[in-house]
C-alpha cells in the first residue's frame, strides 16, 4: 500500500504564492511538500499567462508569468521542496493538535503539522461541453483525459478539439482504435504543425475521419455511448457512431474538493484573519487568491505578504517549544546559511 509521507507542512497549490510560501517557511526551518493538479508549477502564471506581462511585482518592472515562475523556483531551490504534480488533494482532516492527514486522488497520504491552501481560483479541471445529459457518460464513455490507452483498443472513438491535446491523442489512439473520428469546429488547427500534417495524412490515407462541426447531442444508455450528433457549420446534422468520446476544450478553474474539508467558506473563498491568514481551523492556512478578508486584493504581491505572516504562525505548530527570533536575510548569518550563501 501507499507509504505515508511525513513532513512539516503540505502546501496545496504550486502557483506563485504557494512557491513563495516554501521560501518563507524554509527560512524558519520548516519543510514543505507541494501538491498541484497541473502537471507543471506556476499555477495560473503557467497555465493562463506564461507569455503575458505582469507589471506589479515589487522591484520587477516587467516579467512574464513563466519568468516569475522560473525566478521563484530559483529562489526556493535551497529549501529543496518536494513537488507532487498532476495530483489533486481530495481530503484534509485534522487528526490532533498540530496534526493533519492529507490525501490525494492518487492515493498518497501525508501526515503534517500544518496545511497551507494556496489554491488560487481552485483546481484547473477540464471544461465540460454543454451537451444535454453528458454527465451520465462521464468516466464511463466520455473522458477528459487518457489514463490507460488500452482502454480504447478496438473502440470507435470520437476526439473533439483542435489543440495539441486533441491532436496528440488522435495520433496516439488512431493505431489501436477500431475507427477514430476527430471533430473540430473549423478546418484550421492551432496544434503543432507537425501533428496537424500527420493527422491530415491519416485522413487522406483513409485511416481516420475528420469532421468539421460541433457535437450537439449524445445517444446511448447506462452511460455507454452509441452515437453523437455533429452539427456542421452549414447547419447540417450528421450522426457518428462511437463507443467513447474524448473532448479537449482546455481547462477551467473550479473550487474542487476544498468545500468538503470542513473549513468555513464565503462565496467560494476562505475567510482568514489578517495576522496569520489562518482559517477557522487552527493550523489550516489560506493564502493568495483563495482567501478573503476586509480589504483583500487578489494580487500576487498580497499573496507574498500573506505567505510571510503565515509562516510565523506555522512555526508555532511545527516548533511549539522554540522561540522565534525575527531576522533579516541581509544581515543574518543563520538565514544566509539556509540560503546557501554564507
Amino acid at each position: 500500500m501507499n507509504e505515508t509521507i511525513k513532513t512539516d507542512v503540505v502546501i496545496i497549490g504550486a502557483g506563485p504564492v504557494g512557491l513563495f510560501a516554501v521560501f518563507e517557511l524554509g527560512l524558519l526551518d520548516i519543510k514543505a511538500h507541494l501538491v498541484d493538479i497541473l502537471d507543471k508549477v506556476g499555477g495560473q502564471c503557467a497555465e493562463l499567462y506564461p507569455e503575458k506581462p505582469i507589471y506589479d511585482i515589487p522591484g520587477i518592472p516587467y516579467i512574464t508569468g513563466q519568468g516569475l515562475t522560473q525566478a521563484l523556483m530559483e529562489q526556493i531551490k535551497p529549501f529543496k521542496p518536494t513537488f507532487h504534480l498532476g495530483e489533486m488533494v481530495t481530503t484534509v482532516e485534522k487528526t490532533g493538535e498540530a496534526a493533519f492527514r492529507v490525501g490525494t486522488d492518487t492515493g498518497k497520504i501525508f501526515e503534517c503539522k500544518a496545511v497551507v491552501i494556496a489554491a488560487g481560483g481552485g483546481s484547473f479541471q477540464p471544461k465540460r461541453p454543454p451537451i444535454d445529459g453528458i454527465e451520465a457518460y462521464e468516466e464511463k464513455s466520455v473522458f477528459y483525459a487518457v489514463r490507460k490507452m488500452e482502454h480504447f483498443r478496438d473502440k470507435r472513438l470520437l476526439v473533439v478539439g483542435g489543440g495539441d491535446s486533441a491532436l496528440d491523442w488522435t495520433l496516439n489512439l488512431q493505431p489501436i482504435a477500431r475507427r477514430l473520428t476527430l471533430v473540430h469546429r473549423r478546418n484550421e488547427f492551432r496544434g503543432a504543425p507537425d501533428s496537424v500534417n500527420k493527422m491530415r495524412a491519416l485522413v487522406a490515407a483513409g485511416g481516420m475521419d475528420l469532421k468539421i462541426g460541433q457535437v450537439t447531442a449524445l445517444e446511448g444508455s447506462n452511460g455507454m455511448l452509441a452515437a453523437a450528433t455533429v452539427k456542421g457549420n452549414d447547419g447540417s446534422l450528421s450522426r457518428v457512431e462511437c463507443d467513447a468520446m474524448l473532448p479537449f476544450f482546455g481547462l477551467t478553474m473550479r473550487l474542487g474538493p476544498v468545500a468538503q474539508w470542513g473549513v468555513k467558506m464565503e462565496n467560494e473563498l476562505i475567510p482568514v484573519d489578517t495576522a496569520a491568514f489562518e482559517s477557522n481551523i487552527p493550523g489550516l492556512f489560506a493564502i493568495g487568491d483563495i482567501n478573503t478578508y476586509p480589504g483583500k486584493l487578489k494580487l500576487i504581491l498580497s499573496g507574498f505578504h500573506e505567505a510571510a505572516l503565515m509562516a510565523q504562525k506555522a512555526y508555532r505548530y511545527v516548533y511549539p517549544d522554540k522561540k522565534l527570533v525575527f531576522q533579516y536575510t541581509t544581515s543574518s548569518t543563520s538565514l544566509q546559511k539556509k540560503l546557501g550563501v554564507a
Binding site: 471544461k127 461541453p129 454543454p130 478539439g161 483542435g162 489543440g163 473540430h184 469546429r185 473549423r186 484550421e188 492551432r190 460541433q214 457549420n233 476544450f249 482546455g250
Partner: peptide, 13 residues
C-alpha cells in the same frame, strides 16, 4: 483570438 475560440462552446460566425 480565433485559436482561443476553439476552447469555447457553441461558437458562431
Amino acid at each position: 483570438e480565433e485559436d482561443m475560440l476553439d476552447s469555447a462552446f457553441e461558437v458562431k460566425p
